[in-house]
Simulated scan of single mutants.
Amino acid sequence: MTKLTRASGQPPYLRIVAGIRRRIMDGELGPGDRVPSTRQIAKEWGVALATATKALTTLRLEGLVETRPRIGTVVAGTAPAAPSSRQSPSAPPSEQELTLDRIVRTAIDIADTEGLSTLSMRGVAARLGVATMSPYRYVPSKDDLVLLMADAAFGDETYPADAPEGWRARIELGARTLWTLYRRHPWLAQLGSLTRPLLVPNLMVHSEWILSALDGHGLDPTTLFDIHVLIYSHVQGLAVHLEWEAHAEATTGQSEDQWMDSRAPVLQELVESGRFPTFAKMVGAFNDGYDLRLDVLFESGLKALLDGLTPIIEG
């Protein structure tokens, strides 16, 4: 661990800035590469989180780093190509025939990289290099476009012809497949609710997979469907936070770590109030802070859920 001293009379945060700046100038960190988070800096350099935050802020003001939605703090410059389930055609859009599939896939790319809230018919047309009203010849409204996007996105993953043995293995595969799709397209989890579900064919493919895994175990239709909804709600319920966090980061310019660091005084006040002793004990037990890992929560929650359902399904 690197420890900073005040022997040189230079503030610790400036020495951190100099160290990261040197790594950028030497090419060790290139454009688009992630730089250490505030917690990583605090641990590596042996400083307080506030000092680490000040160092990153200084680098950002110098234009050396920038915050990008869904990525974090990276070296400023040309970003790496955004992942997409399908590559955009290499020929200029104006030279290609406009199709519904191109409109939908372009809209998906926008939602994946910039968030669903930024999507507009005008923006899709601009990305395609066509007249503003051209997409309306294929899809009447943004709401209709979003339904087509959802159907296409849910269709990015399918299931093997030979189903795994056992109901549990099939449900685990179904839940993990949905989680993969939500990870790839975070905006998907924002569409529909349990009370007003999204009725598109490719989402029904995933529902059919879960329902068929539960069928044949003597469950009455209501219980079977309740279990199906419960499993889906576990996946979607965690996945909604993917887009929320990306939107919050884009709006505030702060990563999750940076936002938590900014709330440190409020957290400390709650801990020291004496009103929440168990909470205070838990906070004190985290040496390097608590990391909210959605992938881990998904897996542990799925296991606990299926463990609890086993007596009902097999009973």
Results as ranks from 00 to 15, higher is better:
T78R: 15
H234E: 08
L14M: 14
T106E: 12
A163K: 15
E66K: 15
A163I: 08
L194Q: 14
L188Y: 09
P265C: 00
A150G: 10
V74C: 00
L98C: 08
T195G: 08
H247Y: 06
P186V: 07
L294W: 12
E62W: 04
T180A: 15
D144F: 02
E249N: 09
V266W: 02
G192H: 00
G308A: 15
K303N: 12
L29I: 00
G30F: 04
A55R: 10
G9M: 06
T57K: 12
V240G: 01
E62N: 08
V47M: 03
Q258G: 02
T180N: 14
L64Q: 01
I103Y: 05
L203M: 14
P93G: 11
E314I: 06
D151Y: 05
V65E: 04
P89D: 12
P36T: 03
H241I: 02
G63M: 08
D144K: 12
E95N: 04
A285Y: 00
E95R: 15
L29A: 02
D156A: 14
M282T: 02
G216D: 00
G63T: 14
E28P: 01
G77K: 13
F286D: 01
G30I: 06
R183K: 11
Y232D: 12
S141R: 10
L145C: 03
T113K: 11
P92R: 02
L56Y: 05
Q40L: 05
L306I: 09
S88P: 15
L49S: 05
L59D: 04
E272P: 05
D112P: 04
A111I: 03
Q96C: 04
A107N: 07
A48T: 10
G174K: 14
P186S: 03
A161L: 12
T222G: 01
A125C: 06
M1W: 02
G30E: 07
I231L: 12
D220E: 15
N287S: 04
W187F: 11
D112K: 06
G237H: 06
D295W: 10
R68W: 06
A42S: 08
S88G: 08
A264I: 04
G32D: 00
S193E: 10
V200N: 00
L194N: 14
Q258R: 03
A81S: 13
M133I: 04
